[in-house]
């Protein structure tokens, strides 16, 4: 009988042996403590790798990635039928749903340019400061209170992106200001109004080819979402219900 070499041990640990070969290795392991210890080391390393990377499977998929897989002609306001796809779909329930598409957003922002310029010149108060915190004001506060991403108001200077309940239990909504200068941010509803943990210029991130097709959300906003997101992005029904409940 051939001795058990390291390749066989590795294949045994990786489940790559047929039943007869596996039985031969197991018989040898029962006899040879050094071999058994070697197998335990290999198994421990495999387990360590799984422990390090398997949690990624349960992370919410960033919106900019799932947005790439939306049908190009999805009608506005429909919730895409991810959930209707059986067990595989329910496992990935938190795949984010993107409700307005970059092309539509571009068209809308071009159409809005004139209106936006008027609005921009007529007063640009979108933010107030209270107790050292930034809060939404004016048209931004109004849009956050009233608008639904599932039923976008193309006349509004503000486009609502994703709504979700944060780890702190607040409802947060990402938004893009469609009038120049383009800005984007995240607003979370508090007793004092829509607090703005992130609000800044929505510039294309510099250079990198990997980012060329990134969603309009600046990395800072995306990071703020990723840091707060606990469960699902609201679908149209949840968004409506949240509005009806005063975003509490």
């Amino acid at each position: 009988m051939n001795p058990i070499d390291d390749d066989s041990l590795q294949a045994y640990v990786d489940g790559a042996l047929d039943a007869a070969e596996a039985a031969r290795v197991e018989a040898a392991l029962a006899q040879d403590e050094a071999l058994a210890r070697r197998v335990r080391q290999l198994q421990a390393l495999n387990a360590q790798l799984r422990a390090a990377f398997d949690p990624v499977l349960d992370e919410p998929v960033p919106a900019r990635l799932s947005a790439l897989l939306q049908p190009p002609s999805a009608p506005e306001g429909t919730v895409l039928p991810f959930r209707a796809r059986g067990t595989e779909a329910s496992r990935h329930r938190h795949v984010l749903r993107r409700r307005w598409l970059p092309g539509a957003a571009l068209a809308a922002s071009l159409a809005l340019l004139a209106a936006g310029l008027w609005w921009w010149q007529s007063g640009n108060v979108l933010m107030r400061t209270q107790g050292g915190q930034q809060f939404a004001a004016g048209a931004l506060a109004h849009a956050l209170d009233r608008e639904l991403a599932s039923a976008p108001d193309t006349q509004s200077p503000v486009a609502i992106g994703l709504s979700f309940r944060s780890k702190d239990g607040q409802i947060c909504r990402s938004f893009t200001v469609r009038t120049p200068p383009a800005r984007a941010g995240l607003a979370c509803h508090t007793a004092a109004g829509w607090e703005l943990p992130v609000f800044g210029a929505a510039e294309q991130s510099a250079g990198g080819e990997l980012r060329q097709a990134a969603s309009e959300l600046p990395p800072a906003v995306q990071a703020a979402i990723d840091a707060r997101l606990r469960g699902n992005i609201f679908d149209a029904q949840q968004e409506r219900a949240a509005r009806a409940a005063g975003w509490r």
Partner: peptide
């Protein structure tokens, strides 16, 4: 369409592979 729809449930595994 088949590829686009087929990729949706693969996203978590694809992210795990990319992380590794």
């Amino acid at each position: 369409d088949a590829v686009r729809e087929g990729l949706i449930p693969l996203l978590p595994r694809l992210r795990r592979l990319a992380r590794a």
